[in-house]
Simulated assay, not measured.
Amino acid sequence: MTTTHAESYARTEAGKAEIRAHSIKLSRPARNLLMVIDASCSGDAWIGKVNGSTQADLDVLIAARLVAPQAGSGPKTVHQRVAVEVAVRDWTYDALYTLLTHEAKERFGLIKGYRLILKIEGCSDLAGMQAVALDFVEQIRKAHGEESASRFRKQLGATE
């Protein structure tokens, strides 16, 4: 029976320590997954992004307590993320660039806003800009709360 990982996961303190220490024998795909996983995507999405990784690799990381589910990453959060993914498909590169650049300055101030603008500037195509938009929603949620993130999702055209 295959387990799915629709919720998002992030490294635990033990996972961060394992990255430095290499004390647990992990397969290359499992170690790669540990290196990149964060709460910005579901476990299933990370498995799809990390070449060669499988559900079993994520299960190993969970069992070893190197990663853990993140609060608020259940079905509602997954649904909201999918809604944003659908909404940003209707945006052009230039429109997303303009919106995200403006919002980064307004919402995050000089230093964090500058870092986000560097991510925006690093996008060379629409798919990259759409990925930044998804991350941007999560950054708003972390910094300003769910209500602010919800308003921004609606600004993007997402239905919740």
Rank of each mutant, 00 (worst) to 15 (best):
T3D: 03
T3E: 06
T4F: 02
H5K: 04
H5M: 10
E7L: 05
S8I: 05
Y9K: 04
A10I: 01
E13Q: 11
E13F: 05
E13T: 11
A14M: 05
K16L: 15
K16M: 13
A17G: 03
H22P: 00
H22F: 13
H22G: 14
S23C: 01
S23N: 03
I24H: 13
I24Y: 07
K25P: 05
L26N: 09
S27G: 03
S27C: 01
R28S: 12
L33V: 07
L33E: 07
V36F: 12
D38S: 15
S40R: 12
C41V: 00
S42I: 08
W46N: 08
I47A: 04
K49V: 00
K49R: 15
V50K: 06
S53E: 00
T54E: 13
Q55G: 05
Q55L: 01
A56F: 01
A56H: 04
D59S: 14
D59G: 13
D59C: 03
V60E: 13
V60K: 14
L61E: 02
I62Y: 02
A63N: 10
R65Q: 14
P69V: 02
Q70N: 07
Q70K: 14
A71S: 03
S73W: 05
G74A: 09
P75Y: 00
T77M: 11
H79T: 12
H79D: 12
R81L: 08
R81F: 03
V82P: 00
V84D: 07
E85N: 10
V86H: 14
V86D: 12
V86Y: 07
A87S: 11
V88I: 15
D90F: 05
D90W: 04
T92N: 01
L96T: 06
Y97L: 15
Y97C: 08
T98F: 06
L100Y: 01
A104T: 03
E106Q: 14
R107C: 02
F108M: 06
F108V: 04
L110Q: 05
I111P: 00
I111M: 08
G113V: 04
G113F: 02
R115D: 04
L116E: 00
K119Q: 02
I120E: 03
I120G: 03
E121P: 00
G122W: 05
S124E: 14
S124F: 11
D125E: 15
D125N: 15
Q130S: 06
V132K: 01
A133K: 10
L134N: 10
D135Q: 02
F136H: 11
F136C: 12
V137R: 09
Q139R: 02
R141A: 15
E146V: 12
E146M: 09
R151W: 05
F152Q: 11
G157V: 13
G157Y: 12
A158N: 09
E160G: 15
E160D: 15
